[in-house]
């Protein structure tokens, strides 16, 4: 016993290297996409399988870190035997499935979805849109200039966020990020119904009166720039926002001990915004108010020699 008594001055000996339990073994599922056979682990989606084949499937409401809600329908594919098209992002691959990702039916639905969105929403700051529109020949102008839109003035009720819902395609990502998929604050939800459905705080109260904790995780997942950091919004308004002059550097948050990776976006020697990589095991792209906005102290007063 005595030889095993702890001795504080002696370093603790090395033990076995600890391991996480191995992931459950998953059977492989074989299916055919655009005539090519592909094998994916059980539980994979059609999107996973298509990506494995290098097939580029458009997505808007899908994000790796969020549960798929399959609402935008831009990823729909044609599944043999199915009456309707199916969403690639959420439909699980099943053995023997035969799928077409570029049939006339698929192209028509994708084009219509893009036209529906671009005719009702301001997609000018949505980075994916121009490419998709070109690929599918979308012509949102054809519904005429009187087509109803969700145009409305931006909501600027605090110094950190701008919410411009005239750019909102209702992809639900911000609601998911604010809710069960990350932050669990539930400051926003989908309210109303139909074309009037919109993202809202309770009673549409200003953000400053709501449950919002300004983690910015909603902004982090927004695909259209409807949600934007005030810093970026102001620079865009002033015409000084210039991504070609920006650098991105990964570093670690200067606040608490969790060790969140921050991606610092720098332009002209100043920090212009902070994000976090989606594939980072600590953050999964999420930050808190301090990580997201607490950087300002490096931009202001500095000490001097006495």
């Amino acid at each position: 016993m005595s030889d095993l008594a702890p001795k504080p001055l002696i370093p603790v000996p090395r033990g076995p290297v600890p391991e996480a339990p191995p992931p459950r073994k998953r059977a492989m599922v074989e299916l055919t996409i655009d005539g090519q056979k592909v094998s994916v682990p059980e539980g994979s989606t059609i999107l996973d399988a298509a990506r494995q084949l290098g097939i580029d499937t458009p997505t808007l409401c899908f994000l790796e870190t969020l549960a798929p809600v399959n609402v935008c329908r831009v990823c729909v594919v044609e599944l043999e035997g199915s009456r309707v098209l199916v969403p690639a992002c959420s439909r699980k691959a099943e053995p023997g499935m035969s799928i077409k990702t570029d049939s006339e039916r698929v192209r028509l639905s994708r084009r219509m979805v893009l036209e529906f969105l671009a005719s009702s929403v301001d997609v000018s700051t949505a980075p994916q849109f121009p490419g998709y529109a070109k690929r599918y020949g979308a012509d949102p102008e054809r519904f005429g200039s009187k087509a109803e839109t969700v145009a409305q003035p931006p909501k600027i009720d605090n110094d950190l966020y701008v919410r411009d819902y005239s750019k909102c395609i209702l992809c639900y990502k911000c609601v998911e990020a604010c809710g069960v998929d990350a932050q669990n604050t539930f400051a926003i939800a989908v309210a109303g119904r139909g074309f009037d459905a919109h993202i809202s705080t309770e009673f549409d109260t200003p953000l400053t009166n709501s449950a919002c904790v300004y983690c910015g995780n909603c902004i982090g997942v927004c695909p259209t720039g409807a949600l934007m950091f005030k810093s970026e919004y102001d620079m865009r308004q002033a015409g000084t926002w210039n991504e070609s002059r920006q650098t991105k550097t990964d570093t670690i948050c200067p606040y608490c001990g969790v060790g969140c990776v921050l991606t610092v976006h720098e332009q002209d020697g100043s920090i212009v915004k902070i994000t976090s990589p989606l594939d980072q095991s600590v953050t999964h792209g999420n930050l808190c108010i301090k990580g997201r906005f607490g950087y300002r102290f490096v931009e202001v007063e500095k000490p001097r020699k006495k």
Binding site: T251, P254, G259
Partner: peptide
């Protein structure tokens, strides 16, 4: 500022040593 104006490492609560880098 150690986290964005200098190079180095920090160690988080889970003993993870991670790199900090010069961003500005």
């Amino acid at each position: 500022a150690g986290w964005c104006e200098t190079e180095g490492t920090v160690t988080s609560s889970e003993r993870r040593v991670q790199r900090v880098r010069v961003a500005v």
